[in-house]
């Protein structure tokens, strides 16, 4: 038996203080991934600090027309929120494309960002995994990697980040608010998750004892449209083979703003800056979209069994941009 203590935090400050006092503590949100990992033996915290009842369950407008999302807002509630559905449809669609109804009812905004890869080797403690056990090796590179990364991976790790929500947040330029022993700080969602490099053990830049308190969406200028597209092995309840969140503003046939983020391709939501650069100011149209997306995906280094993901991502992105163009 691996005993662990359980504490229901009364405040963010208390949660962070208790975490700092107990190395190896974990914040518990919906538990939809953490508890699974505890059952698998991948996580074995000595203390679970339940933050799911902290007063972080509100979605509120910001003064500048953006949206402030508490860390414990449940995925279902966020997806259904009228402001999200009308102003940030990509986010609502991404949330609804994830997991199952039951899981979305439980999973939190903060927890969703912090979920771990579903790489089969990471989840199996009888096998090597550099993310779980640094230096032990990465069997996925030669083994089962059909679902794993095609871009931004390293010799140490080819894991993908599994979140749908984070992909939409990345394209929407959301910012994560963190509260830790040294106070509050903000990190762009695009900078929140890391690439594996030579240290795949860290998924994100979150510091020990830091806690996600909010996610802030900046306002979108008038005329901006967004959507989320996901391809998967079955019609529901499957992780993305590839997905894309696209945000677009076109005026008089020219692209004023384009943001593109891919899911299922990399260790983090893959914000397609190269593609966006090519799109900015260019005439809206399929040929432009295709060449911009291809410029981005030129950096892909697929493995033996996952080259299809590059094709899939290309199709999803070009089609998403084209679909948005007709609405813009």
């Amino acid at each position: 038996m691996k005993p662990f203590a359980y504490l229901r935090a009364a405040s963010v400050a208390e949660a962070v203080r208790e975490s700092a006092a107990r190395p190896g503590a974990r914040f518990l949100g919906g538990g939809t991934n953490l508890v699974d990992l505890m059952k698998l033996g991948v996580e074995s915290p000595g203390l679970l600090i339940d933050v799911s009842r902290l007063p972080l369950d509100r979605v509120t407008d910001t003064a500048d027309g953006g949206l402030r999302i508490g860390a414990t807002v449940r995925n279902s509630d966020l997806a259904a929120h009228p402001a999200v559905r009308t102003r940030y449809p990509a986010l609502s669609q991404a949330l609804l494309a994830g997991a199952s109804g039951q899981l979305r009812n439980t999973a939190t905004t903060g927890g969703n960002l912090l979920q771990r890869t579903r790489c089969p080797y990471f989840q199996d403690t009888s096998k090597p995994c550099n993310k779980r056990e640094p230096g032990s090796g990465c069997p996925a590179r030669e083994g089962a990697h059909r679902d794993l990364a095609v871009i931004g991976h390293s010799t140490e790790c080819v894991a993908t980040h599994p979140s749908d929500m984070a992909v939409a947040l990345a394209a929407l330029d959301a910012v994560v608010l963190l509260y830790g022993p040294d106070g509050e700080r903000t990190v762009a969602v695009t900078e929140f998750h890391r690439l594996p490099g030579d240290d795949p053990s860290a998924d994100t830049v979150i510091r020990p004892d830091e806690m996600i308190t909010e996610v802030v969406l900046p306002p979108l200028p008038e005329g901006t449209v967004s959507l989320y597209r996901k391809a998967r092995d079955r019609a529901s309840f499957a992780f993305a083979l590839a997905s894309v969140a696209a945000v677009l503003r076109v005026r008089e046939g020219r692209i004023e703003h384009a943001a593109l983020a891919f899911g299922g391709l990399a260790h983090r939501p893959w914000r397609a800056r190269t593609a966006e650069e090519a799109l900015r100011g260019a005439p809206a149209g399929d040929a432009v979209y295709l060449s911009a997306v291809d410029a981005e995906l030129a950096a892909a280094r697929p493995l033996r069994d996952n080259a299809f993901k590059v094709t899939l991502a290309r199709h999803l992105a070009v089609d998403a941009l084209a679909a948005l163009t007709t609405r813009a």
Binding site: S100, R234, A235, S236, F237, A238
Partner: peptide
């Protein structure tokens, strides 16, 4: 192991 979901 993907058994069909209801949506399938």
């Amino acid at each position: 192991y993907h058994v069909p979901a209801c949506a399938d």
